[in-house]
């Protein structure tokens, strides 16, 4: 077995992919992180205290994992879902009752979405309680708050898509508040705009929620917001590294 292993790891193919020796020495362990595209977001060494589960509760990492689960299940759901008031609800029903594993697919997207709202909030609370936002990492906290906002917005736009009573009226409640925006909303203080030119109309695409709302929320949910949150997330991760203090003892 050991001979077979040595032969495999000695081939030109293996060496062209894994560009370091067996990671049992400090050098090779550092190379493991440095020479792997996916691992190199990490620093090569970390302070032992900060990687204890009881320090971070893995909440930032879990939020990211849930985001990946949501992207994967979300893309698969897009194969079956049509954002029209004629088909949307029926397509969700089909997912539950006739698409193979469609039930599990939708359930996972739903539960992971709810869970992500919770884990992002929990991550924020933990970062607060460990004082990890303090200099020099102030700005990354701001980026993090932006990510919390984008997470809520993503969840909210996704909420409408099943087009059932629950989603329709929940989004009605949510969007009705936008009309109360001071100056910009038709029902807010100091309003000069009517119901067909205010910020609520822009957001919903009509006086009430309808086909245009469904399409708007769909495009926001599957293209615009995922793109935006991905970019902001990269900034967030990059700054975790660049702002430093992960290795040094304080």
């Amino acid at each position: 077995m050991a001979k077979f292993r040595d032969w495999i790891t000695g081939t030109q193919v293996w060496k062209s992919i894994v560009r370091h020796g067996y990671p049992d020495t400090r050098t090779n362990r550092m190379l493991t992180i440095l020479s792997n595209f996916f691992l190199h977001v990490h620093p090569v060494t970390v302070n032992e205290r900060y990687i204890r589960v009881r320090h971070s509760w893995c909440m930032g990492g879990i939020s990211f994992l849930l985001y990946i689960i949501l992207v994967v299940t979300g893309i698969l759901l897009m194969f079956y879902y049509r954002p029209t008031i004629e088909f949307a609800y029926q397509d969700i029903k089909d997912l539950h009752f006739s698409v193979a594993y469609g039930d599990i697919l939708r359930n996972m997207h739903r539960w992971a979405g709810h869970a992500m709202v919770f884990t992002v909030a929990a991550h924020m609370a933990i970062v607060f309680y460990t004082g990890a936002y303090k200099p020099p990492r102030e700005f990354n906290w701001v980026v993090g708050v932006l990510l919390l906002f984008l997470t809520l917005f993503l969840s909210f736009t996704g909420y409408l898509l099943p087009w059932d009573q629950l989603s329709y009226w929940a989004v009605t409640v949510g969007t009705s508040m936008i009309k109360a925006f001071p100056l910009l909303g038709s029902e807010g203080p100091f309003s000069r705009l009517d119901g067909e030119s205010d910020i609520g109309f822009l957001f919903v695409g009509g006086r009430t929620i309808g086909q245009s709302t469904l399409l708007r929320f769909y495009v926001l949910h599957v293209a615009f917001l995922p793109f935006l949150i991905s970019v902001v997330m990269l900034v967030h991760f990059w700054r975790v590294r660049k702002d430093g203090k992960l290795t040094k003892k304080l």
């Binding site: 990671p23 400090r26 362990r29 550092m30 493991t32 992180i33 691992l39 990490h42 620093p43 090569v44 060494t45 970390v46 302070n47 032992e48 205290r49 990687i51 589960v53 893995c58 990492g61 879990i62 994992l65 290795t247 040094k248 003892k249």
Partner: peptide
């Protein structure tokens, strides 16, 4: 540093299990 450890495997295995 005294309490500095290599990310691989000390952090990576925790992330994997989590």
């Amino acid at each position: 540093e005294e309490d500095e450890v290599t990310t691989f495997p000390h952090l990576v295995y925790k992330e994997f299990l989590c």
